[in-house]
Nucleic acid binder design. Sequence first.
DNA 1: CTAAATATCTTAGTGACTAAGATATATATC
DNA 2: GATATATATCTTAGTCACTAAGATATTTAG
Lengths: 160, 160
Amino acid sequence: MRRSSAQGVLYGQAVANVAGIANSDLECMDILYLEGRVAAGRLAEVTGLTTGAITGVVDRLEKAGLVRRERDETDRRKVFIAVVPETAMKIGQLYVPMQQAMEKVFSNYSDEELRLLLRFANEGYKSILAATTTLKGLIDTPPEKRPALKLKLTKRPRQT
Amino acid sequence: MRRSSAQGVLYGQAVANVAGIANSDLECMDILYLEGRVAAGRLAEVTGLTTGAITGVVDRLEKAGLVRRERDETDRRKVFIAVVPETAMKIGQLYVPMQQAMEKVFSNYSDEELRLLLRFANEGYKSILAATTTLKGLIDTPPEKRPALKLKLTKRPRQT
DNA sequence: CTAAATATCTTAGTGACTAAGATATATATC
DNA sequence: GATATATATCTTAGTCACTAAGATATTTAG
């Protein structure tokens, strides 16, 4: 799973590369696709970048015609970012090789098996999300108060 | 799956953050863990970074005491990078929250179900790897010769 | 023995990032 | 209704990892 996850990252890098946009830019496009029209600050939250960095991301994406800034009329401090479907589609096309490859893999599984994979994907997501929060919690915890992570199941290095 | 994959990336970022090393540095540590002692050039290949960038990565990791440079005695141009288990272990500990979270998820699956997940992980990895190659192939293909990716299953944007 | 190939390192320059503060708008308090 | 505080984004200066191109060291081929 780590291997395939890592390979997924590399695929994303290749997409960004071909599209001629930065890695974080693509990540934001992905979030915009998943969540729809979101506020700039939300992008910062989700990506872990500062709001300043997001300004740059959105500037580049807007210049590339991939997104549009839209001011919220009820709260004029907010800036919503919305994808421009016509141009964003071109990015979507770069995922076709992966989608086709995965579709081929999926075609070898029964409906019941697919349901299992889906269930696992959901549970795994929630689980990793929670673990991320836990880990980040350690940063804000003063060192002497950290639970001294016993390495229990880390049968780490020492390989060939 | 995209969601959990993205979250996995964020977990990695958090780890790198806590460990005080760059993202690519952590990625290389991961490869070193998976592949063992590897040549510097191999790291460049797998990560997609230039050899120059890898020199920097290894410099930083070596300074942090996480890896050691070892010259190959039979081919003295090569530099092998090897993790230093004692210090690398500290990085490994940062994965404990995720490992525990995932273990908890796995504990709800039968052996047969786990075998299915394993099979899928392997097939998925190979599939994504192949798709990456395909995509990268498009870069080197002169634009007019590209197979004009028909967007078949890209029911992209247009969400709420 | 020379030329070409391979593996890593070096250097100069670029670009995305952070931290801190600026700006603009909204909400709360008196 | 005026002032203070909070919120959301942008700006600026500076940092750091990255690339491209070439330097160095070693190996292989002719």
